[in-house]
Nucleic acid binder design. Sequence first.
DNA 1: CTATAGTTTCAGTAATAACTGAAACAAGGA
DNA 2: TCCTTGTTTCAGTTATTACTGAAACTATAG
Lengths: 206, 206
Amino acid sequence: MSAASATAEVSRSPASIAPSKPVPPPPRQQLRVAQDLFIRRWGEMGQTWGINRTMAEIHAFLYITGQPQCTDDVMGRLNISRGNSSMSLRALCDWGIIRRMHKRGERREYFESLGDVWEMFSIIAAERKRREMDPVLETIKQCQRMLEASEIGKVEARQEAVQITRQRLQGMEEFMSVTNKIFQQFIGNARSGLSRVTKVLLKALG
Amino acid sequence: MSAASATAEVSRSPASIAPSKPVPPPPRQQLRVAQDLFIRRWGEMGQTWGINRTMAEIHAFLYITGQPQCTDDVMGRLNISRGNSSMSLRALCDWGIIRRMHKRGERREYFESLGDVWEMFSIIAAERKRREMDPVLETIKQCQRMLEASEIGKVEARQEAVQITRQRLQGMEEFMSVTNKIFQQFIGNARSGLSRVTKVLLKALG
DNA sequence: CTATAGTTTCAGTAATAACTGAAACAAGGA
DNA sequence: TCCTTGTTTCAGTTATTACTGAAACTATAG
């Protein structure tokens, strides 16, 4: 464990979410407390969006400290096992929202988060669109094909139940196509901080 | 179980995702097959977005058939228990994306899905923003307050680590504020199909 | 009031996902 | 070469979440 991890790790117990100020911690520790608060909330949010808590927490840790950290730093700060750290760090690298890096003269590897939230979001959006939305859109099209008159016959195609299902499929397809386009825009444009998308959106919406 | 549920229920085994056409089913059943395909995919997608599979499947069933269904219909079609159906239907009602309804002269209650995908999405967006994004934004602000010079002292506030964390918090806050605004727009406008937001977005981005 | 049909709840169980820890593996240094 | 330090993997375990089924409850009709 590196020197930086000497103090207590992030706690996940709900009790410590809103520390009721029994004794205000010495200023030196305020940074740590604030970071831990952020880390924990980020982990919770991840869970409800289908990202496991530990991965989200590791990412939050790297993001919020802004400094390269090694596997042992992560283990120590979040109080998780070596195996878990290693697997999760690898997965985050695969997503592309953290990067491996070397320090000159050091043997061990360090990890750091991308600093630009917009870039991270666009990477995640691209990946989730590909993994989760594209297959659904594909399935919808497949269903539509299955219900064409040429497949099921003219008489059957005229049944009310079939008509309704086709309408519903169409509504969903339209929605997902538009959503996909919006994602695409984020993905294509979200470089360089408060990016073009943001400006455009804020102007258009605000 | 109602008369409509006499045939086999949706299977969740991966094997049946892409039926390799051993014997093309009689046209009468094509509707059922197409619906089941959609239901299963929707359930899978739900899972990766933090919605449990059964709830997503029930919703998909009500949406895709477009007809009011009772608890027994749901149980039969998705092959789940009464308890599960009841709880999940209630939760979907609480979300507001399905509604209870009565048929004249019938004692039992029926459920139907909203038909407008945009409206459903806006309801979900509103709820998730409230439950999941607002608390994070609140936490970020709390963290920022904890790191103000007035809290930790001028000297400490000048430490590099503190500076970095404050920058990162600010970047995240900015991102989430904008995202929130976008959600807000969907929420406020997503009536009547391809809504104003969509048009605005597509025009601005495309 | 009693019988019947429908609805809800919840304790216990099953299924799934996450995590640990130890062992195997790699890379560099002496 | 062998030792040391750091990294990765994965079988087994734990924790979490989802689901069942039976019992309690409600409402209506006779």
